[in-house]
Amino acid sequence: MDVFFQILASGLTLGAVYAISTVGLALVFGAMNMLNMSHGALMALGGYMAWFTMTGLGLPPVAGMLVAVLVCAGVGVLIYLLIAGPMLRSEGFETRVFIATIGFGAMLESVILMAFGPQPKPQPLAVQGGLSVAQVHLPVQNLLILALAMVLMAALALLLQKSRIGRAIRATAQNRDAARLMGVRVGMVYALVLAISGGLAAVSGITVSSLSSLLPNMGGDPMLKAFIICVVAGLGRVPGSVVAALFIGLFEAVVQYTVGVRFSFASLLLLVIVVLIWKPQGVFGRHQGVRL
């Protein structure tokens, strides 16, 4: 029984970390058919910005989080202005923006490497200590990550479903021309979506580095997993990707406990293959196009 709860707890934490990194990616793909390959670099940037604000400038954790989110949201807008926006009307947008963001991500990573060096750094935005509930040991950090993920997902769902700007985002995702005919300024929507995604990448980078450490290329693996989760859920399905993230976190925790850590990535890929044979559009995907 204790083992069961231990696996459940670590699986959910893993899932929560994945969920934060995945929804940003799914949101951008759902709204504008864009695979943002610089998402991993944005995660690293967020992690380092929190480190810089707290360790470098000596400011409190709240400031660290805020600076990281704002800087990465700003870089998200920059990606719109410099890359996605100018390409939007061109033919083959999906391929071009895919390649361009690989380049942008590599540049961003190099800048981080030059600014902060190649040695791993500890993430200061982390909480020590643990809670023991009925023989189950839970690090406070993990509980915080879980709570943070839940709050962020709820806020995003509220934004998308209830607010005027959320309606504009969904409308743009479902039919760009129709949204324009309703008076939606789709350029603003795209910039905003990339800003939100950037902010989420920052939070994600902080959580990931708080569980391991800061490295300029720390975003690579989480981004790869986020893509896997997006594909499993069906590209662009935002709520579906949260469910898939939690499921895959649990799956990984079970595999790690039963067959061993070194098999976890291989079994994840096996799962993806099975899912894609069973449902090529992803579990929550649909045949035509992309929907939020």
């Binding site: 969904r170 409308a171 479902q174 039919n175 021309d177 129709a178 949204a179 005919l181």
Partner: peptide, 8 residues
């Protein structure tokens, strides 16, 4: 062709 928002 209407161009509705299909999932709304």
């Amino acid at each position: 062709g209407d161009l509705l928002f299909p999932d709304m």
